[in-house]
């Protein structure tokens, strides 16, 4: 036998405590209404039910239980009234509320910092008429190397430490095989940005990851020159880093472009005065670029005498570190919610 039915007064006290807790946590008019019915309803209210048993009790018990039941009923009514007043104040106006208390939010999500960078790069080039093109991450040696004018058994291959899948297949070491794919699928004029993940056999450390992103761009048409390359990339740098950003182009080497150029911008950290991040040069390398090598055009069946083009590739993971001051590239793979919570406003 439970103590509740043994002692109606104790049962009433428990009922009253339960009602109080539920009223305090109830939200909205309907919830309060439901609680009122549940405890005080004329037909099936739980306190009402106790009152209904009074006639069957002996006089002494009737007095004690009756008193307790009426007290409980009054207390619950008072709590309901208070709660309703609070609800009206909250829903209907600000009178009497402390507006310095925190707002009520839903969860807020964040786009990944690397995606933010990729989208911004692509958006800037969209202003220059570039669309977005993508392709597979597992590639053929032909698309990744041979068609891009990497001679077989050449030291240039050492620049790309490659994961192999066997039978002439590999994980692309750069997004440049997309140049081959897009040129074999579409006719010039071609203006595309090509984001995607790439793979190199570098162990994870603060500045290297075996899996990382690149954005490639390719422009092919009649009459495109080195001046267009410089102009487009300088425009990008000023849009991405700020109007006053100083930019310089240095000769470089990639088998699939000639002339090749690395673009550098004034160091984002020391602004040109020299610091460890820029090896005291005052400049930071941002991307590799160049005029499409005629051999690449021949490999995809485009006439290099008629068409010229330029291309670049850059690393959004590195750019994200730079832009947001993230010290370690591994943090971009951890999915630590404490990092991503900081990006909820960056949509």
């Amino acid at each position: 036998m439970s103590s509740a039915s043994a002692d109606p007064v104790a049962a009433l006290a428990a009922l009253r405590a339960e009602a109080e807790a539920r009223i305090r946590s109830a939200v909205g008019r309907e919830a309060l209404q439901q609680l009122k019915t549940e405890y005080l309803g004329r037909k099936a209210g739980r306190v009402t039910a106790v009152l209904k048993t009074l006639p069957s009790l002996d006089p002494e018990a009737r007095r004690v239980v009756g008193q307790a039941a009426n007290d409980a009923k009054a207390a619950i009514e008072r709590l309901l009234e208070e709660a309703d007043a609070a609800r009206v104040a909250l829903e209907g106006g600000t009178a009497g509320r402390d507006l310095t208390m925190p707002a009520r939010y839903a969860w807020r999500g964040a786009i990944h910092p690397v995606t933010l960078v990729i989208d911004e790069i692509c958006a800037i080039f969209a202003e220059l008429g570039f669309s977005r093109y993508v392709g597979p991450e597992a590639e053929t040696e032909r698309n990744n190397f041979t068609a891009l004018n990497f001679p077989p058994e050449h030291p240039a291959l050492d620049m790309h430490d490659t994961f192999y899948l066997g039978e002439g297949k590999l994980l692309r070491t750069h997004t440049s095989p997309l140049q081959i794919r897009v040129m074999e699928t579409y006719q010039p004029p071609i203006r595309v940005t090509m984001p995607g993940m790439c793979y190199r056999r570098d162990a994870f450390d603060a500045s290297h990851a075996p899996v990382f992103s690149q954005v490639e761009a390719l422009a092919v048409d009649e009459g495109i020159t080195f001046v267009d390359l410089k102009a487009s990339l300088s425009y990008f740098a000023r849009r991405f880093f700020g109007r006053e950003t100083r930019v310089r182009f240095r000769p470089s080497f990639f088998p699939f472009t000639e002339p090749s150029a690395d673009m550098e911008v004034e160091c984002r950290i020391c602004h040109g005065s020299g610091c460890p991040a820029c090896k005291n040069t005052g400049w930071m390398e941002i991307l590799g670029s160049g005029m499409v090598d005629p051999n690449v055009f021949v490999n995809v069946g485009i006439d290099p005498e008629k068409y010229t083009g330029w291309a670049f590739g850059m690393g959004p993971h590195r750019m994200a570190l730079l832009r947001y001051g993230i010290p370690d590239i591994r943090m971009l793979y951890d999915a630590d919610v404490r990092l991503h919570d900081q990006f909820v406003d960056a949509v």
């Binding site: 669309s131 004029p189 001046v227 410089k230 102009a231 310089r248 000769p251």
Partner: peptide, 26 residues
């Protein structure tokens, strides 16, 4: 180009023709 110096080339944007490649649906 290398010995003349890349910094000696101008960088003025010119008109371009729109490309034939649509945005990837994915």
């Amino acid at each position: 180009a290398r010995v003349v110096g890349y910094d000696r080339f101008p960088d003025d944007l010119r008109l371009f023709r729109p490309g034939t490649v649509p945005d990837a649906p994915s």
